[in-house]
Amino acid sequence: MLFAGIDVGAQSVKVAVLSDNKLVFSSTTVTDEEGGVAARQALDKALVALRLPLNSLTAVVSTGIGKDGVAFATGKRTEEICHSRGAYWLFPSARTVLDVGAGGYRAMRLDNRGKLIDFANNSKCAAGTGSFLDAVTRVLDTRLEEIGTMAVSAKKRASVSSYCAVFAESEIIGNIHRGVPKECILAGVCYSVAERLAEVLHRVKIAKDIVMTGGVAQNIGVVKALEEIVGLKAKVPHEPQIVGALGAALFAEEMSK
């Protein structure tokens, strides 16, 4: 039997397919399509890749900001619940999960059975989100994938200390005008993002192990900065962005039992 999870995020749609409690397929599709349509397309692609008919899924659970738009889903779960579930499945030692996506970030605390016992979200401000990093790539004329590696190569860190995204952007421009090297500015940016993340982590009272999920977990600059701030190593799965979808798929499986 096949179970799918779909995570409709602010910028992309993630799909995970489970069979026999094994992850058999995963994908990330960046899309401008409206959530429901994008979800359908992403799932169709998955089934084509698996060479399976479109009606072969037993259950589908949706999550993410656009979860309500997925009309064909047999269930819905929130991002906090799905990321916790996915992270715990990958790392049974996970007690704190940090998900950082394009539209927001959240910290979750789990007990030793993986049950959610507390969570905290970002405030309205974009500082600390993936979208903020996106905006930074435009200002600094760089690519998202490069940010992390450039940041860790820096010898010095520029000051980006404002806790407001708009202010931070003007601080970055100030740094550019002063001739601060790009990688130093990026190191400052990653550090400032990590500071926001550390804040929500502390709110749920950090416990080992920390697992980081969501697209921003691929940014080594942010991960290193975060580890420096909280003084603990973070576990990052191979494909951190699909953990939400994976958690949703696990719920789909559970529902059918």
């Binding site: 929130t78 906090e80 959610l116 016992i117 979200n121």
Partner: peptide
């Protein structure tokens, strides 16, 4: 709403 949903799931179980 999403946060309330998560909270509800959390306290329900």
């Amino acid at each position: 709403k999403p946060r309330i949903e998560t909270f509800m799931e959390m306290v329900k179980s």
